[in-house]
Design a protein around this nucleic acid. Structure first.
Length: 336
DNA sequence: CATTCGTGAAGACGAAT
DNA sequence: ATTCGATTTCACGAATG
């Protein structure tokens, strides 16, 4: 059996039609590829930047999906060489909905010049179409993914979350998609939930409020979706560690490093005494960040802490006493 | 005057029925 | 689906500095 070379690049059709109606001027650093017309009907192509796809205005054919353009990693010195090299893809990543690979296959058994194909070739095309259809039935899901991953990326940036959180969020979202959790739910909600869960799993949690603020869904829907996702996916999301909020709250309040260290100790003591169970971790962190400066004679009001942590003053009051008690009982020397 | 503290009513949530 | 228990929040007033 002869080896079939599937990486040949000649399905790249490059009709040189005059530049068609682009809805917007080329505003990105890199030049885009679709100045030619639609291969299906010849209609003009429209690049939809938001969804990252290029579609035909007339027949709706999606010519190129997932245009996450990271720029070519090659150089071409003339047109021929460009054609030669131009089909290399972007690096694949889980953050791209189809890892950058997708194809469209015509249903007609004709070649590019309109001639009929041999039976052998027809058979081959049939096989290819079968597979392609499988991808296309996933297409609506892929659309979801594309939009969702974009959202995840946007929110993660807004929250200053590192790359690995986005990757994790992508994985979670994919699982949700595969398990058919989406029907009846909003993409936004699930995407937001994925990100929130990912942040917690990776150990850099954000509060529900923080996440909800950058999300397009309201907080209630977000929470509902989150619980749903966690339950259905059996995600093991340990209660957030209060300590992981301390640094952020402390720096926003400009408390001393000494106080911040003390806050961690308070929380550690609380954990040792088991005072923390059932309580809102954010509340604990807030209380610690309020209590610690008191012990080091710094000025921080409940109100200030409450604002940066989105926790009511009442809760801080209730918590920080418990923290101090636990700290004392745990052997910490409490300065008067 | 601002901040802290305590209280009861009310809402939200998870677990159990 | 409802009920129950615990937690959190809100609103208020009192005490403290």
């Amino acid at each position: 059996m002869t080896e079939t070379r599937i990486w040949t690049s000649d399905e790249t059709e490059r009709k040189e039609t005059t530049a068609t109606a682009r809805t917007e001027p080329t505003d990105h650093e890199h030049e885009r590829e679709h100045e030619h017309g639609c291969p299906e009907c010849g209609g003009s192509l429209v690049a939809d930047e938001e969804h990252g796809e290029t579609a035909c205005q007339d027949c709706g054919l999606i010519v190129e999906e997932n245009e996450v353009d990271r720029g070519p990693e090659w150089r071409a010195f003339d047109a021929a060489e460009r054609d030669e090299k131009a089909r290399v893809g972007s690096p694949t990543t889980k953050m791209m909905h189809d890892k950058g690979l997708s194809t469209t296959i015509d249903w007609q058994d004709k070649d590019a010049y309109g001639n009929s194909l041999s039976s052998r070739q027809r058979e081959k095309m049939q096989r290819l179409r079968t597979w392609n259809r499988r991808f296309q039935t996933q297409n609506h899901q892929e659309r979801n993914l594309r939009q969702a991953l974009g959202e995840i990326d946007r929110m993660a940036s807004a929250l200053g979350l590192p790359e690995n959180v986005r990757e994790t969020a992508s994985v979670i979202y994919r699982r949700a998609l595969e398990d058919d959790l989406l029907p009846g739910r909003s993409i936004e909600g699930i995407a937001t939930s994925s990100l929130y869960a990912a942040a917690r799993q990776v150990g850099v949690p954000r509060t529900i409020d923080e996440v909800a603020r950058v999300s397009r869904v309201d907080e209630d829907e977000f929470k509902r979706a989150y619980r749903y996702v966690v339950r259905e996916l059996n995600l093991e999301v340990a209660p957030a560690d209060p300590v992981s909020y301390v640094t952020r709250f402390a720096s926003e309040l400009d408390v001393s490093g000494e106080a911040e260290r003390l806050a961690r100790e308070l929380l550690q003591a609380a954990k040792n005494k088991g005072v923390h169970s059932g309580r809102n971790p954010v509340g604990l962190a807030a209380a610690a960040v309020y209590a610690a400066p008191l012990l080091t004679n710094e000025e921080v009001t409940q109100k200030q802490v409450g604002e940066v942590a989105d926790i009511s003053e009442v809760t801080i009051r209730n918590r920080y006493k418990e923290l101090l008690d636990a700290y004392e009982a745990d052997g910490g020397a409490v300065p008067a």
